[in-house]
Amino acid sequence: MTTLTVQGMHCDACKKLIMMELEDAGLGDSVVDITLKPENIGELQLAETVTSNDEEKIISIINTMETYSIV
């Protein structure tokens, strides 16, 4: 299972914002869990069925969001 590390996540609203963007892109089911860590880091656990293409799309969507970026 792939885990993506996201910089800039500091609260539940951040989790929901990211999920909202992914759902709008039809990729909501690709994320199994989002965990908040210290120092504004969030971890996105991707489903095992996620293809590399979808993974790239997810990374691209998050990187274009204003205050988040994939580490």
């Binding site: 500091h10 609260c11 609203a13 951040c14 929901k16 914002l17 909202m20 204003e66 205050t67």
Partner: peptide, 14 residues
């Protein structure tokens, strides 16, 4: 609300 993310979340949903 407590941060900028709250603003964005509300705006996007509405």
């Amino acid at each position: 609300m407590h941060c900028a993310s709250c603003e964005l979340l509300i705006e996007k949903r509405v």
